[in-house]
């Protein structure tokens, strides 16, 4: 039954997005759908509002940074949940470093508000249409995005400590 819904999701995304739907694959117990960044808002809206799909709950969203992967340095992940049929899916989209912006989904899920602020705070991803895009956990005066890989864990001003002593 669970496979059936994944086929329906694939077909519907294909019809709506055409080439912008970049396929799906199974990652452990999660079906991951790859969608081009230009269509991410439409895809998420379809998944939420379509009566057959009904992914009404946004579990979490998060960004990650892959500096070696040129042209797609950032990956944004959304995790949706259909509680009625108990199906979870993951949506992924890639972002190049020079155009770090995505449409905000706070209109679809109010819970995305702080989650998007958090990703802005740590990665500098600009969510267009977000009502209040400020830093949330770090201080406002901070002038870098700490979860990007180029930022060391230790204070950059110190030379007596080196990241190689901290695992990576």
């Amino acid at each position: 039954m669970e496979l059936a819904i994944h086929n329906i999701i694939g077909e519907k995304l294909q019809t709506l997005l055409g080439d912008q739907y970049e396929g799906k694959h199974l990652e452990y117990d999660f079906m991951v759908y790859h969608i081009h960044k230009s269509k991410i808002a439409e895809a998420l809206e379809l998944l939420k509002t379509d009566a057959d799909l009904n992914f009404h709950f946004l579990t979490t969203l998060c960004a990650s940074h892959f500096p070696e992967n040129k042209g797609a340095e950032f990956v944004m992940m959304y995790q949706l949940h259909n509680m009625y049929q108990n199906v979870r899916i993951r949506i992924k989209t890639q972002l190049p470093e020079n155009e770090l912006s995505l449409p905000s989904i706070t209109q679809l899920w109010p819970s995305a508000n702080w989650m998007e602020r958090q990703e802005y705070d740590f990665f500098g991803i600009n969510f267009e249409g977000h009502p209040d895009l400020r830093r949330i956990l770090n201080m406002d005066e901070m002038n870098y995005f700490p979860l990007r890989k180029e930022y060391r864990m230790e204070d950059a001003g110190r030379d007596d400590k080196d990241d190689k002593f901290f695992g990576r």
């Binding site: 579990t59 979490t60 998060c62 990650s64 940074h65 992940m77 995790q79 819970s111 702080w114 989650m115 958090q118 695992g167 990576r168």
Partner: peptide
């Protein structure tokens, strides 16, 4: 929730906590 990306290295490549209170 724990969202963990591993690149095969000795530490997680990325670890994201889904913290219910935050949301």
């Amino acid at each position: 929730g724990f969202y963990l990306i591993s690149d095969g290295g000795r530490t997680p490549y990325r670890l994201h906590f889904r913290r219910p209170c935050f949301i």
